[in-house]
Amino acid sequence: MRADAPVLSLRGATKRFGGLVAVNEIDFDVAEHEVMGLIGPNGSGKSTTLNLISGALKPTSGTISLRGTPIGHLSAQEIARRGISRTFQLVRLLPSMTVLDNVRAGAVFGHRRRWGAEADAHAMKMLELVGLARRAHAHVGQLTYIDTKRVELARTLASDPKVLLLDEWLAGLNPTELTEGIALIRRLREEGRTIILVEHVMDAIRSLCDRCVVMSSGTKIAEGTPTEVLSDPEVIRAYLGDDDA
C-alpha cells in the first residue's frame, strides 16, 4: 500500500486567523482506496483542515497536493473539478429543487461533467446507491433528516470524486439511522472509494477507518490504526483533559 503514491498529501499545512493558529503544520497522506478518519476534540481544527483541502479556506502556509499536483492555491470550484468533493457539517441542499436536481448538480458540474440524459441517469444511479431512488421527484423540503444527508452524499458522489470529504456526516442521527448511515459508508468503502471522515462517533471510526489522524489544538498528536490511536495516552489526555489522565 505504501508503494503507491498517495492520492492526497498535506505537508506543513497551516491556517492562521489573525493571531490564532487553527491548523498548525499538519502532515498526512491518504492512499488510494483508503478510508481515513480525522478525529479530535471540538475546536481541534478538523473542520478547518477539511476546509483547507476543499478550498473553502486557503492555507496560510504549507502544501496540499492531489496526486502530486499542488492545489492549495486553487479556488473551491477548481478543487471540486479536480476531483475533491465534500459534504457540509450542517447539511446544505438546494432548497428550491427536487431531490434529483440536487444530485444532478454534482453530476453536471463536478469532476466528471455530464449533461442531459446521461446526467439524469447518473444522478438516478447515485440515488439508488444511497437508497433514495423512489423519492427522486420529491421536493427537498419534504425529506427527513437522514434523507437530506443521503441527498447531499449522493450529490458529492455524483461528481465521481477521487477523494470524498465527509464532515461529520453521521452527526445528529438517531440510533437506527446511525446503523443505516454506517452501513452506507461501509458500502462506499467496499466500492474502493478514497474517503476522509471527520467524525465524533467512535463506533463508526472503529468499524470504518483504515487509519486515523488525531488532532488537538490544531496540531497532529497521533496517527495509526483506530485501535492504536484510541489507546494512545496522549489521545486520551486530549479527549478527557489532564485531570483525568
Partner: peptide
C-alpha cells in the same frame, strides 16, 4: 443550458455551487 442550471444552483446556495465545481 448548463449555465442556466448553474445559475439556479447559485441562487439557492452559492457555497454549494462553488463546491460543486461551478465557476460562480
Amino acid at each position: 443550458s448548463r449555465l442556466g442550471f448553474a445559475l439556479r444552483i447559485i441562487g439557492d446556495d452559492e457555497e454549494v455551487a462553488r463546491h460543486s465545481g461551478i465557476n460562480t
